[in-house]
Nucleic acid binder design. Structure first.
Lengths: 218, 218
DNA sequence: TAGATTGTTAATCGATTAACAATC
DNA sequence: TAGATTGTTAATCGATTAACAATC
């Protein structure tokens, strides 16, 4: 790949937010918006919005602003929301269940191909119509099926092993809910979601005054 | 609050990662580590690690490195993991259930005080020993009970209203799983977890080559 | 045409990395 | 003491913000 430059991750992570706010505008029948108006709603700067969007193209018009519907649909394409994805969930615990039952994801183009677990009690049953298979068959399954995304909801103790099997099986990307950090490589892209880390960050914010008082020099 | 400066959010968000890696070292009976060794494990730079830690104090020793156990315990305190927190969950759907049943959180000092939902079928039943109450009583409950953290797991349509009630009720912080962005204010600190946004970011990474090809100028 | 607002270049700010004197 | 490694200052890098000419 020899592009001038990749778009920075900071920008990418803001795109879903633009998409949400543009969706709200559409729901309210707003047809055009300037970077200035949008910046007020999102509390960002107009400059940032224009810079962000101009990574991908000239979607606006001088003196007019942006056509909400057009911009919405461009971002939809950029975020790959016009495609469908073959997804497996590994680990049928509470979080695995929640993800399988979260209807928003199906709306976003997610198609669940299978679930895997170790628990003999669960194997053979279904969640939201998708069969739970024995995790022993994960490697075999991947040989026969092309999978875009593997969602890892297994305990830390088995995370490394499951990641290995999944990567070897040619899965293209991993949505990782385990506490193990997985790295992006040329073969597999990863999005780590560490809920415990997020909670600890909240704890810190909650105690910030006390901590600054105690630890940080004046 | 008149500190020299607050510690930047980028640093705070790395602390849980340090905490995890130091925990692993402890489990492996490693007693000391240099910023260089630690940087290899975490793939960061030694400079970043030393800079990050020095926001809070001089925890190392020249020529020696860091005492793993000591550093672990300092970060534990900084992250507020030596305290307990009174927590309510609003919304007893799939995600609410997953959070209530996630035993790791109890280990981290989370004590669930109550769950709230609108569903008459659910009200009066329990999840993991915690009673589900009618969301109509949320305001009243907060008048009588001091709550550190409210976990919002309600649909987008009721997110704004629930946030309002919770903030008015004097809750100190919000762990927000709704698609609505909530802002940090002087009264309430917020940690937004937008799982849909995270999934869209993964979609983007998966399609990156295609998108750069189509949208980004060479 | 005049006003508005973009796209884009330039300036600023903050975060990361490098360098090195201090010191265990 | 000599070697190692920190804490901290200085340099670099990247991201955000400001400014403004281009143009609808």
């Amino acid at each position: 790949m020899d592009y001038d430059k990749k778009v920075s991750l900071a920008v990418i992570k803001r795109l879903p937010k633009y998409y949400r706010y543009l969706g709200d505008l559409l729901d309210n029948n707003v047809t055009r918006i300037s970077s200035k108006e949008l910046s007020k709603k999102m509390n960002a700067t107009p400059s940032q919005i224009r810079q962000d969007l101009n990574n991908f193209g000239c979607f606006g018009q001088q003196g007019y602003g942006y056509d909400v519907s057009l911009l919405y649909s461009e971002i939809k394409t950029i975020l790959g929301l016009d495609k469908t994805y073959s997804v497996i969930v590994v680990g049928a615990g509470n979080l695995g269940n929640a993800i399988l039952n979260y209807t928003q994801f199906q709306k976003r183009g997610v198609s669940f191909a299978a679930i895997f677990d170790t628990d003999a009690q669960k194997i053979g049953t279904t969640i939201n119509g998708v069969e739970i298979k024995d995790i022993k068959n994960l490697g075999n399954f991947l040989e026969q099926t092309s999978v875009d995304i593997a969602v890892l909801c297994v305990p830390k103790s088995s995370a490394a092993e499951v990641a290995k099997v999944v990567i070897k099986g040619g899965v293209k990307s991993i949505w990782n809910f385990t506490p193990l950090d997985l790295e992006n490589t040329k073969d597999v892209v990863v999005e780590n979601v560490h809920l415990s880390d997020s909670l600890m960050t909240l704890f810190y914010k909650l105690n910030e005054g006390f901590i600054l008082e105690r630890y940080v020099k004046k």
